[in-house]
Every structure is written in structure tokens, then in C-alpha cells.
Computed example of a mutant assay.
Amino acid sequence: MEKRFLGKTGLEVSVIGFGGIPIQKLDKEKAIDLIKELSIQGINFIDTARGYTVSEELIGYGLEKVGRDKFVLATKSMARDYEGMKNEIETSLNNLKTKCIDLYQLHNVRTEAEYDNIIGEDGALKALEESKAEGKIKHIGITSHDLNILEKAIESGYFETIQFPYNPVERQAEELFERANKLGMGVIVMKPLAGGAIINAALSLRFVLENSNISSAIPGMDSIEQIKENAKVGNEYKRLSDAEREIILAEAKDLGTEFCRRCGYCAPCPQGIDIPVQFLMEGYYSRYNLKDWAKERYTSFTNKASDCIECGQCETRCPYDLPIRKMLKKVVNILG
């Protein structure tokens, strides 16, 4: 597996990492099998979060079986204050069954007010710095979906890594990545497959890795087959041909800007609608010539887009500020 340095941290990470969101859907034994397969395929970078329900615990079981020393381990928390972050770090250490976490990140910082709280006198950054001094964590990072927030973070000198979405559709951070790299910061890419919206997965990953400012891309994976397919990109890496680049850029153009990355932050819906799945079915129907299958699947759902009461709770949680209510209406118009 090709490896790159995570900025000036000294950590050498696989260019394909493991995104820990989907593992929360598995049971303990299947989760352990996934962690074993990561080691077999040469993937040494794992990224999870306190907010991914049981993801940390399941990864912890896998680390216990496979060996903590085989992985560079990253997690993150939404805590913004000192006491909250101190507690979160202890929980993460316990869940992951480790004495030290390689990278602890501030998770999804969305507003300047949040950022100011974090770096304030009783903010979460103070707790992270103390834990680093105590040897409980090695490095401090930050994740966001807002370019302005990460621009401030990069210039602050507080953080050693950043994490931001990047794929053939979402390329707005390219200059920011270059600046971070020049300052010696590690650059971690979330959503390298646009949350599963991109069908040509290998081409998308290769597109991402062509950017030399990027340290690692972390697609979410919940099966051994996905691990093998994605790891192959790092194990047999080659740049895109002109024809392949045309294919992946055409797909990106077709997706447009209003599409769901399936991050799940919109949940829970008060009406029990699995919102990302509604958009997935519409995508299969509209873009991938699976009309009958998508219609049949959609019709079988107990709760579907037509049950939306337009309360708007989902939109307040969406890190991409998508007009979810409008998008659900489109699903209803197409699928019923």
C-alpha cells in the first residue's frame, strides 16, 4: 500500500484509509473481520468518531484482536468545552481499548462562534492540549465542511491536521489543501466517493490521490469486498488516463451540486424516513437506469418521502445545507 506522511506528525498513513461511519451497522464479529481485512490489505489508517454510535467500540474489538500497533488511529468529538472534551477523550480511550490515540480531532466545526468557544479559555482545545501533554493523544486535528472555518484553523497554528470533503464533484478546497501542505499539516479527505453517490469508485479515489497535497482518503466501508476494492487503488496506484478522467468528470457534472452524501447527520427524522435512502433510490432511478428496481424498492418502504411533513429539522443538521424538503418533493414526483 502506498503511504504518505500525515504532515509533520511523523505518522506514515496508507493513502486509502478506513472511514468508520458504516461499521456501526455491523455486529461485533463482522466488525472484527473488517479490521483484520484492513491489516491484510495494507490499510493502516482508521478514522472514527464519538458521534458514530458504536463505531469506536466495534473498532476497539478489532484492534484488540488484530493488534493496536498495526494502525494509526484517529477519532473525533463534537464537544466544544473543556470538561466535555476531557470526558470524551476518556470515553474514546476506553471504547478503542488503547492507552493512546494517534490523532484526536474536533468534529464538524460549523460556525465561528463554535470555533471561538473551542479555542477559548475553557474550550475543548485546552483539554486536547492537556491530554497531549499527558500522552493520551499524540496529535490534534480539526474537521469541518466550511472552508472559512478551516482557513482560520490552518493559519492559527493550533492544529496538525485538517479533514474536509473532496472528490471530483467537490473541489472547492484545492487551494486550501495546498496551503495546509505548505505549512506541514496533514490533509485527510472525507467523502472521496461523494458519500457513495459516485458509482465509478476506483476512478474517484484515483482522482483524489492525484492531488499530492492529500495524505489519505477515507471512504466509509462496511464489507470485506469494499475494503479489497478500495485497497486495490492504493496497492496498485496509477494516475488516470485522459479517457478515465473524462469518464469521472462527466459523472461529476451529471451529479451537480444538490446531492446527498449519505453522511446521516440529518437523522433522526420525526416521521421515520430514512432520508439518504430516498435520495439513493431516486439516483438509481434517474441516473443509473435501474428504474423498475428503484421503484419497487421505494414502494416497499414503510416510511418514504411522501410522508414528509416539512418540519425542516433535517435541514438544520445537514452540514452541506441541502434543501432537503425540496429534494424530497422531487423524490415524490419521480417515485410517488
Rank of each mutant, 00 (worst) to 15 (best):
L280K: 11
E282F: 07
I248S: 07
M221T: 07
S300C: 00
R239Y: 14
S306R: 14
T91A: 15
I198C: 02
G19P: 02
F159S: 05
T257W: 09
E225F: 03
D242E: 15
P192W: 14
E64D: 11
C100H: 04
R206A: 06
H107S: 12
R245K: 15
T48V: 03
T316F: 02
S77Y: 10
T302W: 00
K232W: 14
E151T: 13
S156A: 06
M78D: 13
F259R: 00
I101Q: 02
Y61T: 04
G157S: 06
N303Y: 11
K182A: 11
E210K: 11
K132T: 14
S223T: 12
R110L: 08
I334M: 04
K329T: 14
K191C: 08
P268C: 10
I35H: 03
T75E: 03
R317D: 05
E296I: 01
N200M: 04
R50H: 15
T48M: 02
M281Q: 14
G84Y: 11
A243P: 03
L328W: 11
L26W: 05
A217V: 14
Q163C: 03
T316W: 00
K132G: 08
V169D: 06
T75P: 02
G20A: 14
E251D: 10
I334A: 04
E170C: 08
G283P: 00
E56I: 01
D222V: 01
T299L: 01
F177W: 12
I227T: 08
T257A: 10
R262T: 13
I35L: 03
L38A: 06
A231Y: 07
T75I: 00
R297H: 11
D146Q: 15
A243S: 15
